[in-house]
């Protein structure tokens, strides 16, 4: 087993066969505090990859680098190279709004707009000009809500406020909103942490159904969830990517003793 005292390279295969996103030597600072330390990792096309690690380890920070959400934080600086289909997303000529349409994000707390269910989903397609007619927009809204597993529950009340839905429904509405602009990657930052087990199961089922059409990167505090939904699991510790591998090996025979300590509940 690898020694926790050494700054060892990432254990496991950081590469994906058909990468959608390639991150190389990514280092992130908040002011003078290093949050991500030289992380390299591919996210494959159609892959679900989960990030686990102690609170504050940098997993959400890394996730937010992938669609430049960290740009909104003044003291945050990102170094290294992150490419989406080979294109440098930190190139100064890249516009972040279209980038975030290609790389959508769903947050920990469901955050529907204070608008109707319909308008929540239609908002993205409208601003990106994805529908030429009202019928086309209706189709996008219906398809997105169906894919998010919400259509049957809300189709008779699309004009009602999205904020009136239950927590689980709101989260699926946010996923429908993300899907509506046809992203290639969906980032999920602890999407189930505020949900009950039934709502969580629905989201996990949704991830399972979406996996063939999108690349999904999910940050989760639930190791069981990481094991259930992902093709690969990455363990981050103090900003370093310690180990990455299939959940079946990460959760049974981890190779790094830091991973082992974390997943077996031995961190003090």
């Amino acid at each position: 087993m690898f020694d926790s005292n050494e700054k060892s390279p990432t254990v496991g295969n950081i590469f994906a066969e058909n990468p959608k996103i390639s991150a190389r030597n990514v280092t992130v600072y908040y002011g003078d505090k290093c949050a991500i330390d030289d992380v390299s990792l591919d996210i494959g096309t159609g892959e679900v990859i989960s990030f686990i690690g102690p609170s504050g380890c940098g997993k959400s920070t890394f996730l937010r680098c992938l669609n430049r959400m960290n740009d909104t934080i003044d003291i945050c600086s990102v170094a290294g190279d992150i490419r989406l289909d080979g294109e440098d997303i930190y190139d100064p000529t890249i516009e972040v709004v279209p980038l975030r349409a290609r790389v959508g994000i769903v947050f920990q707390k469901p955050n529907p707009f204070p608008k109707s269910i319909y308008d929540n989903v239609a908002y993205g397609p409208r601003i990106h000009g994805l529908a030429k007619t009202k019928d086309e927009l209706d189709d996008i809204v219906e398809a997105s809500l169906r894919r998010a597993g919400l259509w049957d529950e809300v189709n008779t009340r699309l004009d009602q406020s999205g904020t009136g839905l239950s927590g689980g429904q709101q989260q699926r509405l946010c996923i429908a909103r993300a899907i509506a602009v046809s992203p290639e990657v969906i980032l999920m930052d602890e999407p189930c942490s505020a949900l009950d087990p039934i709502a969580t199961a629905r989201i996990e089922e949704l991830i399972f159904e979406l996996r063939n059409d999108f690349s999904i990167a999910i940050v989760t505090q639930s190791m069981l969830q990481a094991a259930r939904v992902s093709d690969r699991t990455a363990y981050i510790h103090l900003g370093r990517l310690i180990e990455v591998g299939e959940p079946s090996s990460i959760f049974t025979t981890p190779q790094h003793d830091l991973t082992n300590s974390y997943i077996t509940g031995r961190f003090g």
């Binding site: 069981l224 959760f251 049974t252 025979t253 082992n260 997943i263 077996t264």
Partner: peptide
């Protein structure tokens, strides 16, 4: 306890 890795074994 949902044991994992060496604990599960």
């Amino acid at each position: 306890r949902a044991p994992r890795a060496e604990d599960l074994r």
